[in-house]
Design a protein around this nucleic acid. Structure first.
Lengths: 116, 116
DNA sequence: CAAACCTTGACACTCTCGTGCTAAGGTTTG
DNA sequence: CAAACCTTAGCACGAGAGTGTCAAGGTTTG
């Protein structure tokens, strides 16, 4: 059998076996499987698990954060949408298009009488 | 007073006043304040709130996801660390450095007798 | 074959997120 | 000045993240 079983992997990586299964569910580190279904962790996975642990601790992240980053990394549409939202400078009420000012004044003066 | 108050902003954007305060806490949309402390939403903030809502619904994201993306966008160290973790091809136990194979075989054979 | 290990499933508990609502106390405005 | 609105603080609650542990049933191996 080629690879460490879950408890062995747990001990060399510092994760608990329970968490290894959980990490697998998040899709971040997926071990191979033996014919009978045993999880088999190879060197690549082990390294990945160790660095992942470091990453999470260093920046106080959650697995879901990294999972989200991964999603953004592969889903172009998502990444573009998020980045473009972030890039539209927010804190500058100075340079906004006329159209915006219009609806703004409208709302401000009508005081929302015609809110959709 | 220049800007919509929280309840007015809530109605034009579709968020609840409660959520507007919450969104503010996440740091994603911060309104100005009047002398006496009232939140004042300008056109830029209102637009930002509307598009944020759209973004969340379109991709089924949480505010925390966008907040995290924002953090990655501004924190170079974090972004680099996360991206480099994601970029190290995981599922290829084939091309791993010798050093890795070494510690791997070691662990595999010693069966973790010397785990720290 | 029996001990040691693995698998999935599920109960449980702590935290955070996302929301609503109420309370006590200032601010604005007709 | 009184009604209407704002502020922060806090209780509450369902949902999901993160983890442990136990149960029932296969697998591996000395």
């Amino acid at each position: 059998m080629d690879g460490l079983t879950i408890n062995e992997a747990a001990q060399t990586t510092g994760w608990s076996a329970r968490m290894l299964r959980y990490v697998e569910r998040t899709g971040l580190v997926t071990p191979a499987r033996s014919a009978s279904g045993y999880r088999l962790y190879g060197p690549a996975q082990l390294q990945r698990l160790r660095t992942l642990k470091e990453l999470l601790q260093r920046f106080d992240l959650g697995l879901s954060d990294v999972a989200f980053a991964s999603r953004m990394d592969t889903d172009d549409e998502l990444r573009d949408a998020v980045l473009s939202w972030l890039e539209t400078e927010a804190q500058r009420p100075a340079n906004v298009e006329a159209e915006d000012w219009l609806s703004f004044e409208k709302a401000k003066h009508q005081k929302l009488l015609a809110v959709a």
